[in-house]
Nucleic acid binder design. Structure first.
Lengths: 337, 337
DNA sequence: TTGTAGGCGTTATCAG
DNA sequence: CTGATAACGCCTACAA
């Protein structure tokens, strides 16, 4: 492996000049630059990223913390992140988080001594300790789909999305609308649901009263959705429409409904949250959270903070849209007002 | 940020000693070690990973190249990789590949000048150029689910899996079995299918003749599967069972079958390839490729190569198993032998 | 416009 | 066992 010294010697210049050429400095005579570039090509020289990181005290790497429960979202978010990073030369160091203990460990270990220049936390509430460290060192950190007053964040407006989903049910005629919600912080069993506020607001807007037994907080995954639906249908006056707080739960609700002999949407309407290839193929009416856009915006934000570390953290939102497909229709005649 | 020098000064020792303590060298007196450790704790000292990488010419990082088309597999494979790496202190640098051009770019840019200590290529055929570079520098590289004579690899035995899937159809009574296959190299339209050999072998074993019009090479994704099924059902003598070469294609086949009014498995049987939460929820009879295990084995292999760079590359295989669920049953009576 | 020297934080190699 | 000291490859003054 040739080093900068080899290039300098070969080109008959000092290493400073080679360095300037590499880094596109204007302070090099055109003739010199070309001579150096020729040598670089001839020797197949490539600057060592590590030496470079060492010298200028930055790594051109960003850490990304992703929880594995967000399986179906992650890749699309990553695509967005890479979109935003395409013109930069940041690379990604990924740390996956595989459950509660792992989470603490990862939040503790990450971003140590200039491993990376910034960090992006995907879909997880950060630990307080982490927030402390980041803001103490004023280390650039952006949260994606979670929020903290001392850190930058890019999120979806869950309230607006849940409101839209619920209002859609109202609009097609439902009055008995239940919620199968996802926890805000999947690692914290005490956290409340993500859609609850928007759901309740929609009911209020429609002049409907909300019922506690229609508000289910279920585990992520199809299992959670299926179980919640069973409980709901076992009620004396079961709902005619379900708003799900996640894609996987919606899939579970849908599968369970069919397994129980309910036709969708004739007997039961379902609105999901989040849209993927699967939900599309299933014809699910759902809230489309623009995951790729979310990733892109978050990465852009991080890059901006990296470039201009001054300002105070800001929380930004990208808005979702309702994708109307085939799983939400008018309620059965017998239950209509 | 305290450096090793601060610690040395504070502890009244030389930096060499501190270095030895950090790296667990036995060549330190117990008393000295404890004094140094105390100072390290007091100062909250953490060695700089970059300086360290620079000094010892290794980074403790592994590059992982993942194609985005493998969306549903990736996270599970990553879990396996992290399983294997849990006791080591390797971190992962992820590079996602978003299509053909991107692929060449990534294979070209990756593993430059000791960015990482090794590389893991997930589910992609490497470029020849890449193979050349890796073996020229004898840089540790492991392919996961692809193969090359000059590199280490861990794969699934597609032949055996496809054979098992097809034999299962035979076993329950089918004679007209079609294949909706996935390309071997998704970036190369000319590559052949992944299941073709096993499929044909199974037919041979069963004394059935194979028909070209039953062998469809379809694009990945539900769309591809659906289109292929339509073509197959349009044949004069359509098959009674479908072996799909991927999970997403199987889902598409299933959805299309139902959309066309075929009951599954009464009218049409389907065996998928690969198993996820979704296929489980859909009750799909499928080949279970142990993705997590695959990731684990690949990472273990890489770590082993890293530790012992001597040996010649070897191709290893992990075997799949058939998960019998609800989409493959006996053929309709009219078609039975 | 260019070359030179110093520094970045470790590890590794020596004498002691 | 321990402490100096020389790399490691690049960047960034600073001087020319």
């Amino acid at each position: 492996m040739p080093t900068i010294t080899d290039v300098a010697r070969e080109a008959g210049v000092g290493i400073g000049t080679v360095s300037r050429v590499i880094n596109g400095s204007p302070l090099v005579a055109e003739a010199t630059r070309e001579r150096v570039l020729a040598v670089i090509r001839r020797l197949g020289y490539q600057p060592s990223p590590i030496a470079r990181a060492f010298g200028r005290r930055r790594t051109d790497k960003l850490e990304v913390l992703v929880p594995l429960f967000a399986q179906s979202f992650v890749l699309e978010i990553l695509q967005g992140i890479e979109d935003a990073l395409a013109d930069t030369d940041y690379a990604l160091i990924i740390r996956t988080v595989d459950g509660g203990d792992d989470r603490d460990r990862v939040f503790q270990d990450c971003c140590v001594r200039g491993q990376a220049d910034g960090v992006l936390v995907v879909w997880m509430a950060p630990t307080e300790d982490f927030v402390g460290r980041m803001s103490a060192e004023s280390f650039p950190a952006v949260l994606l789909n979670s929020e903290h007053p001392r850190l930058w964040s890019v999120g979806t407006d869950h309230d607006a999305a849940a409101l839209a989903a619920t209002m859609h049910c109202v609009d097609v005629g439902h009055r008995d609308i239940a919620l199968v919600d996802r926890r805000e912080d999947p690692f914290n069993a005490d956290s409340s649901g993500i859609c609850l506020r928007g759901y309740r607001q929609a009911l209020r807007n429609a002049g409907l009263s909300s019922r506690r037994d229609y508000e289910r907080l279920a585990d992520l995954g199809a299992r959670g959705g299926a179980a919640a639906l069973q409980a709901l249908l076992a009620l004396r006056d079961p709902p005619t429409a379900i708003v799900a707080g996640s894609e996987s739960q919606a899939i579970g609700v849908l599968a369970a409904a069919r397994a129980l002999g309910r036709r969708v949407p004739e007997d039961l309407s379902i609105v999901g949250y989040n849209d993927t290839e699967i939900t599309r193929d299933l014809g699910l009416t759902t809230v489309r959270v623009p995951l790729r856009e979310l990733g892109r915006r978050a990465a852009e934000t991080l890059v901006a903070v990296l470039a201009e570390p001054a300002a105070d953290p800001v929380a930004r939102y990208v808005s979702s849209e309702l994708v109307v497909r085939a799983t939400c229709g008018p309620p059965p005649a017998s239950t209509r007002a």
